[in-house]
Computed example of a mutant assay.
Amino acid sequence: MKKTDYIITGAGASGLMLAYRMAQDTFFDDKSILIIDKEKNLTNNRTWCFWEQENGEWDDLIFKSWNHIYFGSDYYSEEINIAPYQYKMIRSAKFYRYLWEVIESKPNIQFLSAKVHGFTEMNDFVTVETSEGEVICNKLFNSILFDESFKTQQKFPLLQQHFIGWFVKCDTEVFNDNVATFMDFEIPQNGNTRFMYVLPTSKTEALFEYTLFSKDLLPKQDYENAIKDYLKQKGIENYQITETEHGAIPMTSFKFWKNNTKNVLHIGTAGGWTKASTGYTFMNTTKKTQAVVSYLKGNQDLSRFTRLTKFWFYDLLLLDVLAKHNGDGAKLFSSLFKKTNIKTILKFLDEESNLSEDLRIITAVPPLRFVKALLKRMF
C-alpha cells in the first residue's frame, strides 16, 4: 500500500483551509497530500462571521460587511461604531469553491470520496480506515470529532452555542443594512443565556438567528417560534423564508489537543480551535492553519504544536460562571459592553490584547462570581 505524506480527514472549513495553504506554499510541492471526506460540499450550509481591521485575506469572498453593530438588553442598549474594525460575513458556497479551485490546481493533492471510520497510529505512520479501504500516511490532520469524552468528563464545563437561523426576504424595505445586531437579549431568557443575532444583507433581506449559550438543545419548534415572535415584535409580518441553517457548537475549555501525537494533529473543532467563550471559529482557524504550515517547515512532532495561553484560562473562568449561572448571561455581557471600549473587547476576543487591556475586560464584568470561579480553580 502506497504511503501518502499528509492526509487531511474532513473537507470542512479547517481541513480545506489547511489544504489551501499547503497548495499555496512551494514547500509542499513535492509532498503527496490526500483529502478524505464523503463528498465535496459546495453548498451554502454555513455562514461565518468575524471582525477585522481594514483589508483582509478573505475580502474577495465577503458577502456583506458592517461598520456598526447593535447590542441590546434590559440593562444596556446601544448602536456601536466599531471602526477601524469591520464585521464581515462569508457564505460557505463561495468559500468552498474558491479553496477547491486552488487545491485542485495542484497535482500533488488528491481527493478521496469516502467515509472515515477512524485511524490507528503505529510508530512512524498512521493508518486511516475508510469505507473505500485503508490508506497510510506519515502525518494525519484530523477534523472529525471521533472522541466525545469531552461530553462526559466533569473537569471542564460544557455549554453549547446552538441556533436555528432563517434568511428572510420582505417585499418592502424594512431593514437598516448598515447595522448588524451582534446580541439582542431583549427576548425571554427562560433561565438561559438567549439572544437574537441579526445580519441584514440588504434593505429587504436579513438572517435572523435565535441563539443560546446553554447545556441542552431545544425542540426545533421552540427556536422557530422565537424567531416568529421576534419578527412580530419588530413589526415584520410579511416575509418569505428563503433559506434556513442550524448548528450546535461545543463551548468548552476541554483540552482537545491532549489527543495530539507525534504524527496526528486534531484541527478545527476536534482540535479545540473553536473559541470556547464565544463559539467563533473562522478567524481562529485562519490563524491556526497559517501556524500549522509554518510549524511543519521546522518541526514534525505534532504533539508539540499547541501551547496553552492566558486566554484559555480566561475562557475557562467565563464558562465556569455561565455554566453555574446560565440565566445571568445578559447581565454579564451587558456589563462588559457598557463599561469597555468595543475595540478592546474585539481585540480581547481575538486573543490579541495585552495585560492592561485584559484587566479592563476583567474589571468590567461582575467580579464576585469570577473571583469565586478563580478560587475554585486554584484550590
Rank of each mutant, 00 (worst) to 15 (best):
M1N: 07
K2N: 12
K3G: 03
T4D: 07
Y6S: 00
T9E: 08
T9G: 05
T9M: 06
A11I: 13
A13N: 07
A19M: 07
Y20E: 04
T26M: 02
S32T: 13
L34M: 12
L34Q: 04
L34Y: 07
L34A: 06
K38L: 12
W48H: 05
F50M: 14
F50K: 12
N55D: 14
L61A: 05
L61M: 11
I62R: 02
K64H: 13
H68V: 08
H68Q: 14
G72T: 11
S73R: 10
D74E: 15
D74M: 14
Y75V: 03
S77E: 15
S77D: 08
I80P: 02
K88I: 14
M89F: 09
I90C: 01
I90D: 09
K94C: 06
K94L: 13
K94Y: 04
Y96I: 06
I103V: 13
K106G: 01
P107G: 12
K115V: 12
V116N: 06
G118S: 07
D124Y: 03
D124R: 00
F125D: 13
V126T: 09
T130S: 05
G133W: 02
G133M: 03
E134L: 02
I136W: 03
C137D: 05
C137I: 01
S143F: 13
P157Q: 05
F182H: 10
L199W: 13
T201I: 14
L212F: 15
F213A: 01
K215R: 14
L218M: 11
L218S: 04
Q221P: 00
D222Y: 01
D222V: 14
N225H: 14
A226L: 00
Y230G: 10
L231G: 07
L231F: 11
T244N: 14
E245K: 06
G247K: 09
W257M: 04
K262D: 11
N263L: 07
T269R: 03
A270E: 08
W273Y: 09
A276V: 07
G279Y: 09
T285W: 00
Q290F: 09
V293L: 05
S294M: 06
L296F: 12
Q300V: 08
F311I: 04
W312C: 05
W312S: 04
L319W: 11
L319V: 09
L319D: 08
A323C: 14
H325F: 15
G329L: 06
L332C: 02
L336Y: 09
K339P: 00
N341M: 01
D350T: 13
E351L: 00
E351H: 12
S356C: 03
D358V: 11
L359G: 01
T363D: 02
P366T: 04
R369N: 11
V371R: 03
K372L: 14
K372C: 05
A373S: 13
L375H: 02
F379H: 08
F379P: 00
